[in-house]
């Protein structure tokens, strides 16, 4: 569920087709630069009600999904 929502949020920043995004996809592969990832994180915070410190360096979609699942109330 979290994964699907993250993929949906990603569509604002990446031209890669949603069905070819996996947990192992890196944000670099998906064409996101560092400011895109900040915007994505802000969108995730709004969507899931979590707070994500910018010091967290997420490389893959799966790492963000795991963070959200671990920190959701």
């Amino acid at each position: 569920m979290v994964f699907e929502k993250v993929v949906e949020l990603l569509s604002d920043y990446s031209d890669v087709a949603a069905d070819s995004i996996t947990e192992d996809s890196t944000f670099e592969d998906l064409g996101l630069d560092s400011l895109d990832t900040v915007e994505l994180i802000m969108g995730i915070e709004d969507e899931f009600g979590v707070t994500i410190e910018m010091s967290n360096e997420f490389k893959t979609v799966g790492s963000v999904v795991k963070y959200i699942e671990d920190n959701m109330e």
């Binding site: 560092s34 400011l35 990832t37 900040v38 915007e39 994180i41 802000m42 910018m54």
Partner: peptide, 12 residues
């Protein structure tokens, strides 16, 4: 400057 932190601070 930490650009990522400031970007988030600015927009929010």
């Amino acid at each position: 400057m930490n650009g990522r932190e400031i970007f988030k601070f600015a927009v929010s």
